[in-house]
């Protein structure tokens, strides 16, 4: 029962990691951009959530109504104003620029919010739990996992059943020919980044309810997101969920053996899967 509990908790944690990863995966899939500042954007979203909740007294989940569109707008402006200029045949400029962005966001957050750890108050949601077949499951982790499934399903549906998704795939396939179809790739990329940061907003707020956060933790969230994406296979959103779950389970199992091993065992699972399946478990986009 103990071990079953560990695995279930790890699975639910995987939902949060999948939310960290989904935006990364989307952006890489559409424009081959590896966004080093992704983790810091998650933390930025958590702070935006904090600001909204403390200014308005809204519940953090209701604050999403403001945080998601705000992050979306930031994403579009960031892409049109900065990141589009870095895209080309060379992979290095976007890496360098998003690395710089990461540093800027961290320092900006330090200035505005200081280095003190913060947390969002979600009332009873933080501690509520359900007893299911002898297991005691937190409502927040369950909710996070459910949100991850809905978000990934929604992204997948957008990709394969809407004109926007068709445009994403066309631009990803061949930018020149997509332009000939009347698609302005700079705009499409902006919309993709807006969508990715909308998901990031959800991830950041859920993170900020679950644990305390400070401006320095973005790097760790980026690594978890990356690992989930790579384990699942690049360009496959459901694979990203599987990757998040594997990472989460590896971490909780490691922590069960020795609390100090949580993070390490996640990295080891990642390296192990990379060694046996260099392209991840489910590579390529699947319909």
């Amino acid at each position: 029962m103990d071990w079953l509990n560990v695995i279930v908790q790890g699975t639910l944690l995987g939902g949060l990691y999948a939310l960290f990863a989904a935006g990364l995966s989307l952006i890489f899939g559409v424009m081959r951009l590896v966004n080093i500042s992704h983790g810091d954007l998650i933390v930025l979203a958590a702070y935006l959530g904090l600001t909204v909740t403390s200014a308005t007294g809204l519940h953090p989940l209701l604050a999403l109504v403001l945080v998601v569109p705000t992050m979306g707008v930031i994403g579009y402006v960031l892409q049109r104003g900065l990141l589009n200029q870095t895209l080309g045949d060379d992979l290095l400029p976007p890496l360098l620029v998003t690395f710089g962005l990461s540093v800027i966001i961290q320092n900006g957050l330090l200035e505005v919010y200081t280095a003190d750890p913060q947390k969002m108050d979600a009332g009873t949601l933080e501690t509520a739990s359900l007893a299911v077949g002898g297991l005691n499951l937190g409502v927040l982790p369950l909710l996070t996992f459910a949100v991850a499934i809905v978000v990934i399903w929604g992204l997948q549906w957008t990709f394969y059943h809407t004109a926007l998704g068709r445009a994403f795939r066309a631009v990803s396939d061949n930018q020149d020919i997509a332009q000939l179809m009347g698609l302005n790739r700079r705009h499409i990329f902006g919309v993709a980044m807006a969508l990715a940061l909308g998901v990031t907003a959800i991830a950041g707020v859920l993170l900020g309810i679950r644990t305390s956060f400070d401006p320095s933790i973005g790097g760790g969230r980026l690594i978890f997101g990356f690992e989930a994406v790579i384990i699942g296979g690049l360009g496959n959103l459901w694979g990203t969920l599987a990757g998040g779950v594997i990472l989460g389970v590896a971490q909780t199992v490691g922590a069960k053996v020795d609390p100090g091993w949580q993070i390490l065992s996640g990295h080891l699972a990642f390296l192990f899967i990379l060694a046996i399946r260099p392209n991840g478990l489910f590579p390529r986009i699947s319909a």
Partner: peptide, 16 residues
């Protein structure tokens, strides 16, 4: 576009 079906390749032409 290899990621698009035949129908989607045609549909995207109508995007304008």
């Amino acid at each position: 576009f290899p990621s698009l079906s035949v129908r989607e390749n045609l549909m995207i032409g109508a995007q304008v």
